[in-house]
Amino acid sequence: MLQHIRPAIMMIVLMTILTGLAYPLAMTGIAQLIFPWQANGSLITRDGKVIGSALIGQNFTSEKYFHGRPSATTDTDPNDASKTIPAPYNADNSGGSNLGPTSKALVDRITADTNKLAAENPGTKVPMDLVTTSASGLDPDISPAAALFQVPRIAKARNLPPERVRALVEAHIQGRIAGFIGEPRVNVLALNMALDALPAT
């Protein structure tokens, strides 16, 4: 019987070493050599401090900043561990709201958000990604239309010419990957950093 068990045990040990240790270590080493920035989380720094990642959105709420997509992520309620509370862009609990198109809560939220944005920029169609959440709840990017929609509010809040803010958005539009994958997009954190870096008028 031992002669039948020994090969199985040896195979488990060998495959554990190969696939559980050697392969991950080799891939990690190659990634660190070829793509160190991406392998370390695509972290964005300012003045030597990490302020975020190019891959995870942040909850900007000030009128002076571009806002990302709504996020439906949650966290444990500190007052009651059996409940959850909204925690936008919570990377520990990535996910969508799981609310369907017939959900009254979803319809009410989107309607309220749309009305608020429509009042902010009258006469301009509200881009869909400013009122809908992504599947992950962590989307760091918005569409160029969503960024341009916010130009009047930011220009007013910062006392800047709208043309200057619009030019900043257009300079930060990233095209489709390899020319055909995905859609044009704007990274919200990178755009807000560039906004803060604008010289005062």
Rank of each mutant, 00 (worst) to 15 (best):
M1W: 13
L2C: 09
L2N: 13
H4K: 15
I5T: 14
R6T: 15
P7E: 00
M10P: 06
I12V: 04
V13C: 04
L14D: 08
L14G: 10
T16L: 04
I17H: 00
L18D: 07
T19P: 04
G20E: 04
G20Y: 00
L21S: 04
A22N: 03
L25R: 13
A26D: 10
A26M: 14
T28V: 10
T28K: 12
G29E: 05
I30F: 12
A31I: 08
Q32C: 09
F35T: 10
F35C: 08
P36Q: 13
P36G: 08
W37D: 08
A39V: 08
A39P: 06
G41R: 09
L43Y: 06
L43A: 07
I44N: 07
R46A: 15
D47K: 09
A54F: 06
L55K: 06
I56A: 00
G57S: 02
Q58A: 05
Q58L: 01
N59T: 13
F60S: 07
F60C: 12
T61P: 00
K64N: 11
Y65H: 12
H67S: 14
G68R: 01
S71A: 08
A72C: 11
A72R: 08
A72H: 12
T73W: 14
D77Q: 09
S82K: 02
P86K: 11
N90W: 11
A91K: 14
G96T: 05
S97G: 05
N98F: 01
N98D: 05
L99I: 01
G100P: 07
S103M: 00
K104E: 14
A105V: 11
L106N: 03
L106W: 00
L106G: 04
V107Q: 14
T111P: 01
T111E: 03
T111Q: 01
D113R: 15
T114M: 13
N115P: 01
K116P: 11
A118M: 05
A119W: 09
N121G: 10
P122V: 06
G123L: 11
V126A: 04
P127I: 14
M128A: 15
V131A: 02
V131I: 03
T133R: 05
A135V: 01
A135F: 03
G137Q: 07
G137N: 07
G137C: 07
S143L: 02
A145V: 10
A146I: 05
A146R: 03
A147K: 02
P152D: 01
I154H: 09
I154V: 10
A155E: 04
N159A: 09
N159R: 03
P161A: 05
P162F: 04
E163T: 14
Q174S: 12
Q174D: 06
G175A: 03
R176E: 13
P184Y: 11
P184R: 05
V186H: 00
N187R: 06
L189M: 13
A190F: 12
A190R: 15
A190I: 15
A190Q: 15
M193N: 15
A194T: 12
A194G: 13
A200K: 13
A200Q: 07
T201A: 14
T201E: 15
T201P: 14
